[in-house]
Design a binder for these strands. Sequence first.
RNA 1: CCAGUUGACCGGGUGGCCGCUCCGCUUCGCGGGGAGGAAAGUCCGGGCUCCAUCGAAAUACGGUGACGGCUAACGGCCGCCGGGGGCGACCCCAGGGAAAGUGCCACAGAAAGCAAACCGCCUUCGCCAAGUACUUCGGUGCUUGUUCGUCGGUAAGGAUGAAAGGGUGCGGUAAGAGCGCACCGCGGACCUGGCAACAGGGACGGCACGGCAAACCCCACCGGGAGCAAGACCAAAUAGGGAUGACACGGGGUUCGCCCCAGCCGGUUUUCGAGGCCUGUCAUCCGGGUUGGUCGCAUGAAGUCGGCAGCAAUGCCGCCUCUAGAUGAAUGGCCGCCGCGUCGGGGAAACCCGGCCCUACAGAACCCGGCUUACAGGUCAACUGGCAUU
Length: 119
Amino acid sequence: MLTAGSQGAALRRLRKRSEFLRAARGQRVGRSAFSLQANAREIDEPGIGFTVTKQMGNSPERNRIRRRLRAAAKACENGFEPRHDYVLVGRREALSMPFGQLVNELATSISKIHLKKKS
RNA sequence: CCAGUUGACCGGGUGGCCGCUCCGCUUCGCGGGGAGGAAAGUCCGGGCUCCAUCGAAAUACGGUGACGGCUAACGGCCGCCGGGGGCGACCCCAGGGAAAGUGCCACAGAAAGCAAACCGCCUUCGCCAAGUACUUCGGUGCUUGUUCGUCGGUAAGGAUGAAAGGGUGCGGUAAGAGCGCACCGCGGACCUGGCAACAGGGACGGCACGGCAAACCCCACCGGGAGCAAGACCAAAUAGGGAUGACACGGGGUUCGCCCCAGCCGGUUUUCGAGGCCUGUCAUCCGGGUUGGUCGCAUGAAGUCGGCAGCAAUGCCGCCUCUAGAUGAAUGGCCGCCGCGUCGGGGAAACCCGGCCCUACAGAACCCGGCUUACAGGUCAACUGGCAUU
């Protein structure tokens, strides 16, 4: 199932409703293109999930938001810390924002959310 | 060339890097498949599944509605008819029944369905006036006429309305009127053509039978309900409902396997009577909910090409193909090149340079056949009306 074996940074995809609810109880950081939620988990591999609600647009637009966020998450794969679950909630800005900016904002959001947690 | 009508189609291409999902294999990898014409709205029709009935019919309710055909079926499609619109190609139509019955026809108008009569027109009579004849000078008779009243006639004309009991013309009449005639319209036995809807002709009738059924209704035909979160199965864990059996509690018997008898009072079973039941442990079975997984799940009324039949929808035959299967939901992210469009500049033109956009509508969720709605830009074919040329 998993393309395991390579590195510890392989991302695990969240699929259960309970996993999303658990992540939503943790820290969160907001940006114009997305909102990042994170919470600790006992599994070593970091988990990532995506949420795009119906208010964001029709079905092709929602798909596009989720795919761009997924590609951005893949780009900062090494930034995610183990033993944590992350959920990205999409916003409409994710459609039009340049991809480089999207990746930068995600990287800073990840470091910020862990800084916030320690304080 | 310009304007238009109808039908069909495309809906970016090609590479690089990094990914997702499914399938296969020689499994630390490799190879292959991977959104649409509407996938949409969920408006119809089916397949499939469960429930009910296990047979259809009836009632109720809902739907459809010219005629003929196609289809698994349809409210779909094709052909044709009728009506309406357009110079035309062509387009639009919820297109059965109004002498089965009930009901409605606002406002206006005299009157909205039995026909009736407001103004008007005409006749009789009365009153009045004028003229005239006679006169016993008081009047009487006759003729004509405006206003008014009255007994009637009439539906030409006016006025209202979406609609006023055929239309136009001539004759006719006191005035009028299908009262008579001609043409048109209407009904129509019958004849001809057509499978039929219907079309053409039409003796005769003298005009009667207004509209609304998207008002109730009548007629014909069709329809059981819910839907893949249908439904089937597996596993785990949790609380503990029901049934059956064994053991344990009193007395007696015993061949030590077990058998027989008793169980008051009280409580419960809605009430009364009868009957049944009451405690604990263990085992088995049944039932209920939760979570996860597997199947359902893609070979089908399937598609390409060719042939035949048919005006067509469509059907038949042959060959070949396998063509997405996700489930917090894959089918993508980024970057080049080409192409399209558009804007600006240069140029006589071909074209060149630069910028923008690189697209519209929109994402499979069990599967098919339709309908409806949305859609940037573009292509092709047939036909129509003009203009020019030959």
